[in-house]
């Protein structure tokens, strides 16, 4: 039996290979429940990470994934960060996927310098009771870092910055 193929970095020169799947909105502009999820990726010196691939994976508003969600719900988005390290998705707030977990969006982050992807989650600030009983948020070794996993509402929608290192380092997961 062969073992798993190891991960390697996405490198700096992926744009022409991965852009075709980027920039497709999960919901159309003007969708009544549109959620603009956006943010900036920063390195250990606070500089923007201008060559990252951000991918999201999430349930639909009813908590369903393809193929059980209504057709048209892809649940997946890819965005390549720009010169400001920013990313943005037009999506909808996911529903609860089971009886325990608060609504959340899973993120994969790939970049030059990352030999394997980083995985994190976005939680919602208006889900206080659900967040306070969420098994992931409540089992962090350092509870004070939970705030790095909760988006911040702003004029555009929900802001979720990712900090790869430093005092505000985002919680990243092993899976």
């Amino acid at each position: 039996m062969r073992g798993p193929t190891p991960s390697q970095t996405v490198g700096p020169f992926f744009r022409f290979g991965l852009a075709w799947l980027a920039g497709r909105d999960l919901v159309a502009e003007g969708h009544p429940g549109l959620l603009r999820l956006h943010g900036v990726v920063r390195d250990g010196e606070g500089d923007p990470v201008t060559d990252a691939v951000v991918e999201i994976w999430q349930a639909d508003p009813a908590g369903k994934f393809p193929p059980r969600s209504p057709s048209g719900w892809r649940g997946f988005g890819r965005c390549l960060t720009g010169p400001d390290g920013g990313y943005s998705f037009a999506t909808a707030k996911p529903g609860r996927v089971d009886g325990m977990q608060a609504p959340h969006i899973d993120i994969s982050l790939f970049a030059r310098g990352l030999l394997q992807r980083l995985v994190t989650r976005v939680y919602f600030p208006d889900e206080g009771p659900a967040n306070s009983s969420d098994p992931v948020l409540t089992s962090l070794p350092d509870p004070s870092r939970a705030e790095t996993l909760v988006g911040v509402p702003d004029g555009l929608g929900l802001r979720f910055d990712m900090c790869l290192q430093g005092p505000g380092e985002t919680v990243f997961f092993a899976w």
Partner: peptide, 28 residues
Amino acid sequence: AYRSSALRAPRRPLVPLPGGPTEASGPV
């Protein structure tokens, strides 16, 4: 030995993520 990892590798230990429906599914 891989210079680009210096400012990009997380310094805090990764937190184990208990698998749920989100992790058990994927895009089609």
